[in-house]
Nucleic acid binder design. Structure first.
Lengths: 343, 343
DNA sequence: TTGTAAGCGTTATCAT
DNA sequence: ATGATAACGCTTACAA
């Protein structure tokens, strides 16, 4: 008895322990615990009672091996998560909520995203039931091998030109369009754009909206108003200076995203200019930082939490139904007008 | 042959497949792949070659069951992760780095933290090899059952009065002390404190430093200068107004943490007061938001990334050595003097 | 309704 | 150096 009690704390209780305790077979115990129909109510209750008393909890490892799934979803990042803490935190908050509501958990991977090999290793090992990729851009050379692995995956926050791949993306085109129209409505004719071409399709969409909006307003496209940056603070600022130093500088500037806008704001204020009186400024994404600056920055808010949630939900569709067709979702975004454009 | 190829894509390759291919036993394959000494170099190479060719990757589930460990670390939150995105993101960044460097991964749990039952379930199921608790406060009623589970755990970001429990905490006492000395050096005699008593030991430490610093400067403690808040924006602001409305208001205010300080700043500015000329202000934690306000807010910076890293490393010590004694680490913090106190 | 036994893919303990 | 074989703890045909 003393012996039993000691082991009790070290070794987890198994269904075998329960079966011995009750004098029934382990399969009966298993069935009873899983609420199968072919067990008498009486034994079902006895088993559950004893299981409770003994503090039984099924071994995740054993279950995973037998059921060939883990109830875990891998989130693979290939972008640094600090620096975009808002983005990251909101997405994760949405994702864990959706996952846990459905009995799943999120596993974080930050290295696997840096090499296709690591990613495939992860798939083959079946450490998780599916993947959500949080990448700046997912090339076809990654998507194709992934599809062959038959491990469901969803791309988060970006769309991708691949009809077999699933994604949940914000509506970059219409968001940027709304932003442009807002500036055009305010009478701006020369609108600068600090672009981030490395963001691929996100760039394509936002830039297309920029051009289309100009065209819609019959304003000729002026390439000197578009400056590329790599997101580095100093480069964001020098891009801003380039715009300000133009012979005919813009009266409004759109930054590819909020963090660039914050650097641009600093550069503009340093020149002694007033925002928005001398020059209007807008960002994109709706990170909380854009609300804290003085003036607060007009932006386009992504439904980050929802993007996290729906990515997980999409993945769960694949897990529930292996005939599920690719899911491609574009979520509406919202223009947030703040002091930097209408102060 | 065609049959084999089809299965090839659906069913992952196992050591049995490799053994058949080579005409050796599965135990030989296992040994060869695990680099054991009792295998001839020749077969070892053949096995590894074929494994590579067949795209073999060991099944995580099988390995977990057999080895009785998962190489995963659970992060259990009972605090909402949005709103403190900086805090969360930096800690997670540090934690995943440390974990992945050592072949482990992080699993996120946000519900388990809300009920002790869920937490114990998680332990008994052995879903992970150990836990890191990111809680506002971990009561003894949770620590004791956890210790009995013999699942290693580390408390992150807070200390705890329990000599059996491990934690990695910032040095709240000395951080608050440095902050107080800074204000006292500037000549402030009446220093307000917007406190957050629900944070338990964190509150105890920061508040003790507040009192000790006053005592060290021979300034009598005035209870009317300490107002409690629950962290809600409106309550943070009304706490600030209470201080401002005192017959003899403070010339400096310390907020329990940066987010409270940001709300306090807004309240103070709304009164038309100048910071720091009319009233100095400081926060705690070093969240990036405190740098964006105008004026920027003096704060005490926690080494968040390092806290994340060391929590994982501490946990790994327990996994490597089950005789490991409790680890209690207090990390130094850094006073960041900004415009809100020396503007 | 219940029990027996096979199997999930490994690793580890025996023999040989 | 290598091969059977028994676990690890669970689920699920198949028998009884």
């Amino acid at each position: 008895m003393a012996f039993t009690q000691t082991l009790f704390q070290i070794m987890p209780v198994t269904i075998e322990d329960i079966s011995k305790q009750l004098g029934v077979s382990i399969s009966t115990v298993s069935r009873a615990l899983n609420g199968k129909v072919d067990v008498s109510e009486a034994t079902k209750e006895r088993v559950q009672q004893v299981a409770q008393e003994m503090g039984y909890q099924p071994s995740a490892a054993a279950r995973n091996l037998r059921r060939q799934r883990t109830e875990k979803i891998g989130f693979v990042f290939n972008t640094a998560i600090s620096g975009i803490s808002d983005y990251f935190a909101e997405i994760i908050a949405g994702a864990t909520t959706a996952a846990e509501e459905n009995g799943h958990n999120i596993v974080l991977y930050t290295n696997a995203g840096h090499s296709p090999d690591e990613l495939l290793k992860l798939c083959k090992a079946r450490e998780v039931d599916g993947l959500v990729l949080v990448w700046d851009h997912v090339p076809a050379t990654v998507i194709d091998p992934l599809l062959e692995e038959a491990l469901p995956f969803v791309i988060l926050g970006r769309r991708v030109n691949h009809h077999q791949a699933s994604y949940v993306s914000p509506d970059n085109y219409n968001g940027a369009l709304a932003l442009m129209r807002h500036l055009l409505d305010l009478g701006h004719m020369r609108i600068g754009f600090i672009d981030r071409p490395a963001m691929k399709l996100t760039h394509v969409d936002r830039f297309a909206a920029y051009r289309d909006a100009l065209e819609g307003a019959s304003i000729p496209f002026d390439p000197s108003l578009v400056i590329a940056t790599d997101g580095e603070q100093s480069n964001n600022q020098s891009a801003t200076y380039q715009l300000l130093d133009l012979p005919s500088p813009p009266t409004a500037v759109i930054a590819f995203h909020d963090l660039i806008a914050i650097d641009a704001l600093e550069a503009i204020l340093e020149r002694g200019l007033h925002v928005p009186r001398d020059i209007a400024l807008a960002g994109f994404d709706g990170l909380s930082a854009s609300l804290l600056t003085k003036p607060s920055i007009t932006t386009v808010k992504q439904p980050l939490r929802k993007i996290g949630e729906q990515s997980v939900q999409a993945l769960l569709c694949f897990l529930a139904n292996n005939k599920q067709q690719p899911i491609q979702i574009t979520l509406p975004v919202q223009l947030e007008i703040r002091e930097s454009t209408i102060g």
